Simulated assay, not measured.
Amino acid sequence: MSNARTASLSAAGVSIWLDDLSRNRIESGELERLIESHDVVGVTTNPTIFAAAIGGGIGYGGRIADCAARGFDAAQTIVELTTADVADACDIFSTVFETSDGRDGRVSIEVEPGLAKDTAGTIAQAAELWAKVDRPNAMIKIPATLEGLEAISETIAAGISVNVTLIFSLERYRQVVNAYLTGLERARAAGRDISKIRSVASFFVSRLDTEIDARLREIGTPEALELTGRAGVANARLAYEVFEQAFSSERARLLLDLGAHPQRPLWASTGVKDPALPDTLYVSELAAPDTVNTMPEATLLAYADHGESSGDAIAGTALESNQLLNAVDALGIDYAEVTAKLESEGLDKFEASWNELLRTVEDALGRAR
C-alpha cells in the first residue's frame, strides 16, 4: 500500500526517484518494495553510489570472479557491474516506464568522471553505455561542463536519453536547455522519432546552501545569518522559472508540437547537510508540476514519515527568490564564483570516488585470480 505523503507528492506532479542503486537492493526485492510503498518511479546513480555499493561487496563476488576469468581489467569490470545493475533496474521499472509513456521508469548511469572535459570521449562513452545497457528506459548522465554541452546535444541527436548532471548556476542551466533543444533539432533533421527522447536537468540544491551558508556565517552579521539555509531553494525556484520560460518559447513549442518532451528539472543533492534545517526541506519547498526529486533513501523515508506539502510550492516565488540571491550578492558573496567552485568540487568528488572504485575492484580481481 502506498504511503499517503509520497502519494500526495506524486499527485502534485513530482516524480520521486531514488538516488541509490546496488546489486543487493535489486536482488533483495527492496527496490520493488519502494516502488509499491513509496511511489518511487526512477533511480539515479553516480560514481560515489557505485563505489559504496561495490565496495560493500554484497552481491558482486560472482560477477567479479567471472570478469577475472575473462581477463578484464578494473575499468572493464566496473562497466560490466554497473551496466548489469542498471539493466536489471530498468527491467524492474519496465511497467512504470510503459504506463507513464516513457516519462518515468528511468534509471541513470553516468559517463566516467575523467571524461567531463572531453567532448568526443563523452559522446563515445555515452553511446557505448547506452548500447551496453540496451534498455529504452535508461538515461546517460553527462556533467554540465562547458565541454559537456556539445556532448549533450550530440547524444540527444543520436536518439539517446540524457540526464544532465552537476548543474549549479542559472546561466549554465540556460545553456543546458539550449543544448537539449539543439540536440532535438539535429535528431529531427536526421529523421529520428523525437517523441522517444527524454531528458532531465539535474540542478544541485543542498551543496549551494553548504557553500553560501559557510560564507554567511563567516560574515556573521544578523543580516547575513538571516539568509542561511535559503539560497539553495531560491536558486532552484529560479531555475524552475527558467524551465517554464524556455519551454513556452516559440523554438520549444515547434519541437513539442512535433512530439518532443520538455526537459524536466530534477532536484538533486536533496539530502539536507545542515542538521539545523528540516530534513525534508528540499522536497517540501520544491514541489511543483513537471519536476523530479531524486532522494537518498534517508530523505525519502523522512518525507514518508513526516514530510508536508501543500501542492505547488514554487508558483509565485520568483520575485522573492531573486531578491534573496540579490541580498546574498550585496554582502559580497559572488554567485558566479560560488557555482564555478561547486562544479569543480563536484567533478573532483566523482573523480575521487571513481579512483576509489578502481582500487576496490582491482583488489577484488586480484583475489579472484
Rank of each mutant, 00 (worst) to 15 (best):
A313E: 12
V272G: 05
Q245C: 01
A53P: 03
L365K: 04
G71D: 12
T99F: 09
N293K: 06
A68K: 02
Q125N: 02
A364P: 11
N178H: 12
L208M: 10
S153K: 10
R198C: 07
A187Q: 03
A231Q: 09
T145F: 00
L286S: 11
L208C: 05
E223M: 02
A368F: 05
L331I: 02
T119E: 15
E154D: 13
Y303E: 13
F93W: 02
Q245G: 08
V111W: 06
A315Q: 11
G332P: 08
T291R: 04
T280Q: 08
D104V: 06
S108H: 04
R215C: 00
G229A: 08
Y240W: 06
D134A: 15
D348T: 12
A68H: 06
I194A: 08
L256K: 07
G29E: 09
E351T: 13
A315H: 13
E308Q: 15
G13K: 12
V233H: 11
K117Y: 13
I194D: 07
S169K: 03
A276Y: 05
S153Q: 08
D20Q: 13
A52H: 13
S108F: 01
K273M: 10
L331P: 03
D363Y: 00
D91S: 13
V205C: 10
L286M: 10
C67E: 03
P262T: 14
A224Q: 06
R63W: 03
A151N: 02
R251A: 08
E351F: 00
R230T: 06
F203W: 06
L115A: 09
S248E: 14
D88M: 09
L266W: 08
Q323V: 02
I142K: 09
T280N: 10
A318M: 00
T99C: 01
D348G: 03
L149M: 15
G13F: 13
A179F: 12
R192S: 08
T221E: 08
D101T: 14
R174Q: 14
N163F: 04
I197E: 07
E241D: 13
I92L: 15
A157F: 02
M1E: 09
V43A: 00
Q125W: 01
V14W: 13
G102L: 11
I49Y: 00
D20G: 12
L342H: 03
E150G: 12
A239C: 15
L9N: 11
